[in-house]
Each structure stands twice: as C-alpha cells, then as structure tokens.
C-alpha cells in the first residue's frame, strides 16, 4: 500500500497519481467513449475525480490505493456533469466544462502571490503538510529538519499566525476599499 504521508510526500503523491492514470484511466476512457464522449472531456473529468479521490483518501486512510473507488468517482463526476448540462459532455467546450461547479473556488495567481510574499513558501508547505496532507508532526519534523515534534509545532503556530495576519490584512484592505 502506498504511504502518501511519507517524508517525500510530494514525490510519493506524484508517483501514486501516475499509477492511477496508468491503471484506471484506460477503463474510464472506454466508459466515456461508449457514451459518445471525447478524450479531452475524459481527461478533464479524470483530473477533477483524482483530486476528489486524493482528498477522500487522505481523510480516510482505509481507502488508500483503491482504484475501484477512483473509477467510481470518475463515473460519478461524469454523470454529474452530464446531468448538469442536460447534454452530452462531448458537445461542451472545455471552457464550459471548467465553468461547471467545481469542488472549490480557485484562488487567483495574484492572491497566491500576495499570500506567498507574506507567509513564505516554506511556511505554506509546512502548514499544508499538516492541515491538508494530514502528515503527523513527527513526519513534518523529520521532513523539514526540525530537532523534534515540539519545535515543529512551535514553527507551525508561527506560520499559522502569518496566515492569520494575511487574512486580517486582506479584510482591512477590503474594508478600506469600501470606505
């Protein structure tokens, strides 16, 4: 079983995604083709499904590496998009596909740039390792070269405070803008 919360989290994750493509995408492509869909649409849906799969997988370690589960999500996303549009996905343009309701509102590159300049890339990596990728503080301490869990935890709160400051500044800017 692939341990996605390993020290080399990024590399492990990329390898796992590639395996998902090689093992699940052909079956899903056949499913899409049988329903009159095109390759571009299958790729779009697969990317969205893979993100959903990863997030559920991280939350529930018990379904790690379950390719049947990924295939199920692909079919679900495909059907949701078809139902949403009331037409075959193959008839939609890729921008229309991108416009259908995704799992979240994508942050703009301007916002990300502002966030990174304030918080720093290393801090964001540390925070996402804990709050999104569900790594333990022990794993984080090892990966980021801290002497132990305690110093990693102290750093985590320092970084969190930076994000909080960023959020507060954003709010202030918005209010100033309204004034």
């Amino acid at each position: 079983m692939t341990d996605l919360s390993d020290v080399d989290g990024n590399l492990q994750r990329m390898l796992h995604f590639e395996t998902c493509y090689l093992e699940v995408f052909p079956a899903f492509a056949a499913f899409v083709h049988q329903r009159g869909g095109h390759l571009e649409a299958a790729r779009e849906v697969f990317q969205e499904a893979l993100l959903i799969y990863y997030e559920r997988m991280v939350l529930q370690a018990s379904i790690e590496g379950n390719h049947k589960y990924l295939y199920g999500i692909c079919r679900h996303v495909w059907r949701r998009k078809n139902r949403h549009s009331g037409t075959h996905l193959s008839e939609l343009t890729s921008s229309e596909i991108a416009d259908t309701d995704g799992p979240y509102e994508e942050p703009s590159s301007h916002k990300l740039k502002a966030l990174l300049s304030r918080v720093g890339e290393r801090c964001m990596e540390l925070l996402t390792s804990f709050y999104y990728h569900n790594q333990t503080m022990q794993e984080i301490a090892h990966a980021f070269g801290f002497s132990g869990e305690r110093s990693a935890t102290v750093q985590k709160y320092k970084c969190l405070e930076k994000v909080r400051e960023h959020v507060k500044t954003k709010k202030m800017t918005y209010e100033d803008f309204l004034a």
Partner: peptide, 24 residues
C-alpha cells in the same frame, strides 16, 4: 480569522495538487 486561515491553507494546497495532476 483562524477559520479563514485554514480555508486559505486548504485552497493553496488544493491548487498545488491540481497543478501536480495537470503536470502528470
């Protein structure tokens, strides 16, 4: 504020993972 900070962190991470998937 803290709730919003967690949302910012999740959105950032999600964007990173999306980019990784797109690259593959």
């Amino acid at each position: 504020v803290q709730r919003q900070a967690y949302q910012v962190i999740r959105d950032y991470a999600r964007k990173q993972v999306q980019q990784e998937i797109a690259a593959i």
